[in-house]
Each structure stands twice: as structure tokens, then as C-alpha cells.
């Protein structure tokens, strides 16, 4: 199962529509980094609106992906984290301290635009 990565100008859009299992998450990590390298993207928006559950491994992978992308010069914004997911993450002690977040895709893109100076 692969998660599609869409290119939109200088940005990459990822809407996660499937249940994230460990394999999918690792595959996604690889795909995204390759895509950033290939397209030279400056920003990435990962939309998690339809994700109902995140376990600690997936949370770690997401944190890693964000850090790796930052290393490659692409800012990452996570959007649409559901309240239940947020509560689970906090209860697990995962606060994704370094990660940017936004309410939805629209605000996520706005945020990227702000950060990258228009």
C-alpha cells in the first residue's frame, strides 16, 4: 500500500486516507524523501484528517519524517489532526514538539507560505 504524494508548485501534498500500518509508514517515509529530492520541494503538507488512530511507532515515524524533511530543506506542516488522535498522542507522551501544525489543509498551506516568505 502506497500513499500518493501530490506535487503542487513548490509544495508537496500528502493526504493520508488509509489506516497507517508500520510498513506503509516506512514506505511513505522513503517515498516522501525521494520525492523531495527529486522535485526540490520547499514545503510539505501532510494532512491527517481521515486518520482516526496513531500508535507510538507511527508517531515516531511521523516525527522522523518531519526532521528528515527539514534536513533536506523542506518545511513540513501537519494538518487536520483529530482531537482523539491529539489526546492519544499527548497521553503517550508524544508531543511532536518541533513539528508545525495547522487546523486544515488550507491553513497549512497559508502557514507554509508565511514561513517561506510568500
Amino acid at each position: 500500500m502506497r500513499i500518493p504524494i501530490l506535487k503542487l508548485g513548490r509544495y508537496l501534498l500528502i493526504s493520508v486516507q488509509v489506516e497507517l500500518d508500520d510498513q506503509t509508514a516506512l514506505q511513505f517515509q522513503e517515498d516522501l524523501l525521494n520525492k523531495i529530492h527529486q522535485e526540490g520541494s520547499l514545503g510539505v503538507v501532510i494532512d491527517l484528517t481521515s486518520v482516526d488512530m496513531i500508535d507510538s511507532f507511527i508517531a515516531k515515524v511521523i516525527g522522523d519524517v518531519v526532521e528528515m524533511s527539514n534536513l533536506m530543506g523542506a518545511k513540513v506542516v501537519l494538518t487536520g489532526i483529530q482531537p482523539a488522535v491529539a489526546i492519544t498522542l499527548i497521553d503517550m507522551g508524544v508531543s511532536l514538539q518541533e513539528v508545525q501544525t495547522a487546523l486544515d489543509l488550507e491553513q497549512g498551506l497559508e502557514r507554509l507560505q508565511q514561513e517561506l516568505g510568500g
Binding site: L78, T79, I81, A86, L89, I90, T101, L103
Partner: peptide, 12 residues
């Protein structure tokens, strides 16, 4: 603190 971290996660 927990609440505020969760708030940040949902993007506010």
C-alpha cells in the same frame, strides 16, 4: 500543559 500540547497538535 497537556491540553496546550494537544491544542498545538490539532493546529491551533
Amino acid at each position: 500543559i497537556k491540553a496546550s500540547e494537544a491544542v498545538r497538535l490539532v493546529g491551533a
